[in-house]
């Protein structure tokens, strides 16, 4: 179990039109709660269950990475700011944290084995970035003023699965 969250990091969600802004502490239970708030926002903007599933998995992986890596050295975690913007074609996200910089190349790396069964032992982790890359578009990262800023979008596809979903 993580140390008790620092309440200073949490603020009530702020919604204005198509935007939802959240500030949370990087612990697993606040991450769960934020995912629910984002899904409620997406539902208000007519996201169907497939969209909601896509948003939930991509955002969960992004937030877990911050909790487990960016704030790895901080037992009480740290603040995460999320902005979700609903547009007619996509849900756009900006996710900021004050943790250690995202290592170079992590956005491009591929951790899934290319063949099954894999030659070596089965991986038990490292699927997170693969899922993020497969289910989002316009994935980009900047480091500004000591903060990591990851932005990405989940495109709205009527009556279809995500483009890289293989179905």
């Amino acid at each position: 179990m993580p140390a008790k969250a620092d309440p200073r990091h949490t603020r009530p969600p702020m919604q204005s039109g198509n935007n939802l802004r959240l500030r949370l502490n990087s612990d697993e239970y606040e991450i769960r709660r934020s995912l629910e708030q984002i899904k409620a926002h997406a539902t208000r903007h007519n996201a169907d269950h497939v969209m909601l599933g896509t948003i939930e998995i991509v955002l969960a992986e992004v937030l877990n990475n911050i909790a487990e890596h960016a704030y790895a050295s901080q037992p009480r975690g740290g603040p995460i700011d999320i902005t979700c913007t609903a547009t007619p074609v996509a849900f756009r996200f900006a996710v900021l944290d004050e943790g250690t910089p995202l290592p170079r190349g992590v956005l491009q790396a591929r951790s899934m084995p290319r063949q099954y069964p894999p030659e070596g032992p089965l991986p038990e982790g490292g699927f997170g970035w693969d899922l993020i890359r497969m289910l989002s578009v316009r994935l980009s990262f900047t480091r500004k003023h000591g903060r990591n800023c990851l932005s990405f979008a989940v495109p709205i596809l009527k009556g279809a699965m995500c483009p890289k979903d293989g179905r």
Partner: peptide
């Protein structure tokens, strides 16, 4: 459906 999708995307459905 959402669980199935994660297994397929990561190719763990082959394992």
């Amino acid at each position: 459906p959402n669980v199935d999708r994660v297994f397929r995307l990561t190719r763990m459905d082959k394992v």
